[in-house]
Design a protein around this nucleic acid. Structure first.
Lengths: 243, 243
DNA sequence: CGCAGAGTTGAATAACGTCAATTGATGTGG
DNA sequence: CCACATCAATTGACGTTATTCAACTCTGCG
């Protein structure tokens, strides 16, 4: 569920299928106006009847659940093109909030399903999307289950980096969310996130530039530290390129 | 992805839709023979091309991934009726192994998708199944992110208990998997699982009877301790009330 | 009976969390 | 443009929880 439509690394080619999945479904939303949502504002609430699906036209969205008092889990960040609520049955099982200024399109769940059912092409696109979500959820479970703080951070940064950046300056990755968001997504505290970034910086792997940018100095090492890399691939290094 | 087709609690009614989802899809597998798989044996391997889907006819199956050396994550346990690989695109992203003696049916992924596409009724059933998996994956992410050892164990036991037990003796829950399996599913170590069960037993909440059964003595408390419970629900309140 | 594997228990340790103080960034009004 | 206020992020000291490593117990089985 983390960062849908994207694999962890650039060198894993997106299948044509996967690209179509997002894009053909996106067309359904074009008939509705793109509503602006300012940063921090909610788009839908956990527990509400899922009458609508949404599409992120622009900006970054977080999906979260709250358990107990003050325990927040961010199950996913969504980016331009992603759908909100594709995998819902009846109710929203998460709250969606704008991380940055967003433009959001909506359509009723009913007509979404009708449109999908109507078109031969959209059913596989929709199914493909659901499968991608499942794969992402799998990844996230592995991260939360067995990775330490450093591996979590590195995995997260690599995933951010592998996404086409809005402003693709050399090795500079935009981090739209704040430290608390990152912490709640990685199952850590804000302090641990901060300390871990500091440690990575001291080892000259990534260097924070302001609150919302990271310069990636040593990508191969970063990938290696993410815990997903083949331990035996000395070429895990040059296989992966940023853009 | 945890224990598909089931909600956490008995009192949460399954929707007719959800039941149909599993059952109508199951029919597709009836044409193939039920192959016996003995405990511990693999059904498919992570990384292999997903040429087949499987259905658990009988027994319990675990899905896992290995990262690094000796780190295993069990992303789900599957029970009779569940499908293995419904949410796959190309390759298996997990290894499936029999926890107990199993009977497994298979069918090619190609013909599965053809059959589903052919039938008006099966598409929504399939989509419904994928959505249930997504919801279960969400739950599991919350558990792994924000719950402590006790809450994890209690959540797990409640989920087991809410599943229709093979031998539904009063408050006795069958636990087919061993401690290591439980640990790898809950993101804990075997020792922590053991200690936590001991602690729950000393508080007279559940009592282990042999290695593979748990007697549930105080279900309301168990639910409360699982961390999912409504803090304001009537009977969790009077229990918590100060003397 | 004795062995092997699974499970439990205990003590020491490491990793992350908590609390509190400090630094740094951003934004605003003079 | 600077001074100040405010909030985000970092850093440090300390506490807690789960892990690690090791010893021991229990169970099933030949």
């Amino acid at each position: 569920m983390l960062m849908q439509n994207n694999h962890a690394f650039d060198h894993v080619e997106k299948t044509g299928e996967a690209i179509d999945a997002g894009q053909s479904l996106s067309c359904l939303f074009l008939s509705s106006a793109a509503e602006p949502v300012s940063a921090g504002k909610a788009i839908c609430w956990e527990g509400d009847k899922a009458k609508h699906l949404f599409q992120v036209e622009e900006g970054v969205v977080r999906l979260h659940r709250i358990i107990g008092e003050g325990r927040r889990v961010i199950t996913a960040f969504l980016f331009a093109g992603d759908l909100i609520g594709a995998s819902l049955q009846n109710d929203f099982i998460f709250t969606a909030e704008a991380v940055t200024e967003c433009k959001i399109r909506r359509m009723s769940r009913k007509s979404f399903h009708e449109e999908v059912a109507r078109s031969e092409a959209l059913v596989p696109a929709y199914i493909s999307l659901l499968c991608q979500e499942a794969a992402a959820a799998h990844e996230q479970m592995v991260l939360l289950s067995k990775k330490n703080a450093e591996e979590r951070l590195c995995s997260f940064i690599v995933k951010l980096a592998s996404r086409r950046n809005p402003r693709p300056r050399q090795g500079l990755v935009r981090v739209p969310m704040n430290r608390q968001d990152i912490a709640d997504h990685l199952g850590l505290t804000i302090e641990t996130v901060s300390r871990t970034i500091t440690k990575l910086a001291s080892r000259n792997i990534v260097i924070p530039e302001g609150r919302h940018d990271l310069r990636i100095v040593n990508l191969p090492r970063l990938i290696q530290l993410s815990g997903d890399a083949d331990d035996f691939s000395d070429d895990s290094c040059h296989r992966v390129k940023l853009h």
